[in-house]
Design a binder for these strands. Sequence first.
DNA 1: GCGACAG
DNA 2: ATCTTGTCGC
Length: 289
Amino acid sequence: MMVSAQHASRTAYEEEFRQLWFFCCSMEEAPEEPSQSRDSWRDHQTWITTQDILREKLMTEDSFSWKLSSESEPGYKKGEELRYVGGVDISFSKDDPSKACGTLVVLDFHTLQVLYQDFSFVTLQVPYVPGFLAFREAPVLQQLLEKMKRSDNPFYPQLLMVDGNGILHPRGKCFTNEYCFGLACHIGVEANLPTIGIGKNLHHVDGLTHSTVRKLLGAEENSSKEYINLVGCSGRIWGVAMRSTQGSIKPLFISIGHMISLQTAIMIVQKTCKFRVPEPIRQVKLSSI
DNA sequence: GCGACAG
DNA sequence: ATCTTGTCGC
């Protein structure tokens, strides 16, 4: 591919290229067994294809039947509002990194009390590769959701908060920036649920860096804002950096997962934040073993 | 002095 | 992620 042809307008493209390059390098480890690295490449291709397919079903606008209680209107019926908010996460064993525990909780949106909790131990064979977190973590979480749905549990979540990013994600075809599909999107599409991605660290995308965000949050004109848009150098809005607690320094990175708009996601996250990390995620971490 | 990127 | 140390960030 003719990379060096364009020199002037290469910043955004080059960034994509470098990300891909770093990824390629990371897949070439394990030199002792060359066959393994071939398998890694095959998996890599499969992952990309899978993300491409799932992404076609991604919905980036509000798409749910419930309402937020604040917008109760004339035709309002009890039971139509958002009530069951889920949270999913995985914790790992300290001595054996392949041993993990997936956890699912459901909270009451208004009281923030835990209504449901379940977990499942697994042995993970898939490595963590930046940009492909879903292939490591999603299966267990899917199972927990499935189990709950199959048993017709009345607390089955109407919305899911995911410990990881949604749209705020670098995965893409080379030299384009219109593709992105993080863990929250992945789970949302597969479970057909509205999801919100909750990141505690920034995944560098489209020129966004930690220092960029730090400067934005520290800027005078933003000092009173509770959140700021994460605008990449392409102009795209990837999500927001949010001060979930008054005066908190370390922001939360909110991005939409599936079937929800950024504005709605922000509102919901704010309403569920007693501390820096929103309750569904905080509780799921407390529940995990 | 090094290494950039969710968990 | 997890552990640990220590207290900025380029």
